Computed example of a mutant assay.
Amino acid sequence: MRWQNLLALVVFHSGLIACTTPQTGLLGIAPPADNTDRIALIAATTRAPVDNPGMLFGGDRGDAVAYSRIVVSIPRDRKAGTVQLPRQMPGDAKRDFVATAVTSISRNDIANAFRADGAHRRRAFVFVHGYSTTFDRAVFRFAQLVHDSDAKAVPILFSWPSRGQFLDYKRDFDNASYSRSDLANLLEASIASPSIDEVVVLAHSMGAWLAVEALRQVALKRGGVPAKVTSLILASPDLDVGVFRRQVEDMGPRRPKITIFVARNDRALQLSQFISRGGARLGRIDLSQEKYRQALSDLKGITVLDLSALSLGDRVNHALYATSPEAVRLIGDRLLQGQVITDADVSRPAVAIDALGAAATFVVTTPILIFDTASGTRH
């Protein structure tokens, strides 16, 4: 009902009011410090560059994809799942996430960058951020995820021109759609690199629409997704359930394993559905409802993890994939290894809710609920 939608808008807005005008310019170079860890990542972006050296790239579309290598320093004395942003610039590496080096990479040298970083890590970990995310915050969030998951992979950030503003939802969606071919090209470059044996893609929120579309584009071009792409992780995907189903069908049987992190209490997706006036968002489905289980049950190789029961003091519940230590552990220990998560990887099953024949299982665990469709075989 309309009053419920308006209430959701008020609740969500009160929880995210600080994000409407986020502090930016956080990538100003700071000196390194002891008792820190460093994450070096490759960033590819369709954003236009800006003159502010602390921002590097803004929220407008660039003329071409720009590449850079960014080294992020992370203090060891912090809780897993947290990003400690600088309170003032330049940040203090002893207590803050800071950039200690930024180097541009030419388009012609991107293959060499893959080769250098992939020499001892034959797996690429590609991250696509979501709506209302500035470039600097995307860098820090990805660095936190790589660090906390202990990812043994080449970290590659794909950053599209999100405006970083709460009210720019429609513009963000257009900019994400604008970037589809560029993400597809980046994935194809990773696939083609002899230095990389596996590619794992993790996409958050609106970035999930972009990532699935890019892989669909690759599949339509190649007659399927190449086997090097072993896993697609969709975290709180801001994606219509029916659209997702059609995208997966278009990929055909040769596609990666797909893992979806959902939360029924995700207020960001509740607002997204209201703003877009669209159908149910994939990242907020209720697996106790037959219609959602039915929508996914015959799509092979899909696992849904319901994180609704996780309590982290976050009223929005839209970034649990990165802020929950248990979710981060599953990403690092299982999904980045190209493996499927089962109830044995989380807490002991509490109640068996339903069984969907040989095609799928549906099990409640504490605190994570799993829906696992039958695994398909790709060649």
Rank of each mutant, 00 (worst) to 15 (best):
L6M: 13
A8S: 12
V10H: 05
V11M: 06
F12Y: 11
F12M: 07
G15T: 04
I17R: 15
A18G: 15
A18Y: 14
C19Q: 12
T21I: 11
T21N: 12
Q23V: 13
P31Q: 06
P32E: 01
R38A: 09
I39M: 12
I39C: 14
A40H: 06
I42Q: 01
A43Y: 00
A44H: 04
T46E: 03
A48C: 01
D51C: 07
M55R: 04
F57A: 07
G59H: 02
A66F: 07
I70E: 05
I70S: 07
V71D: 05
S73K: 00
P75N: 01
R78N: 03
T82R: 08
T82S: 12
P86G: 02
P86F: 01
Q88P: 00
P90W: 04
R95T: 13
F97H: 05
I105D: 01
N108E: 15
N108D: 15
I110G: 07
A113I: 06
G118M: 11
R121D: 14
R123N: 14
T133G: 03
T133A: 14
T134Y: 03
F135Q: 00
F135I: 00
F142M: 15
V146E: 08
D148Q: 07
S149G: 10
S149D: 06
A153P: 09
P155D: 12
P161V: 06
L167R: 09
D172V: 13
R180H: 06
R180C: 11
S190E: 09
P194Q: 09
S195V: 03
I196K: 02
L202A: 08
H204N: 10
S205F: 07
V212N: 01
L215P: 01
V218N: 05
A219N: 02
K221P: 06
V225C: 08
V229L: 13
V229K: 02
T230W: 00
I233K: 05
L234M: 14
A235R: 00
L239W: 14
G242F: 13
F244G: 04
R245A: 15
R246M: 15
I258N: 08
T259Y: 08
T259F: 03
I260W: 11
V262L: 09
R267S: 12
L269F: 11
F274I: 05
I275F: 15
R281Y: 04
L282D: 01
R284D: 02
D286R: 10
D286Q: 03
D286S: 03
Q294H: 09
V304A: 04
L310K: 11
G313W: 13
V328I: 15
G338C: 13
V340W: 09
I341N: 07
R348I: 13
P349C: 10
V351R: 10
A352G: 06
I353L: 14
D354E: 14
L356F: 11
A358S: 10
A358G: 10
A358R: 05
T365N: 13
D372A: 13
A374C: 07
S375W: 04
T377L: 10
T377P: 01
H379A: 10
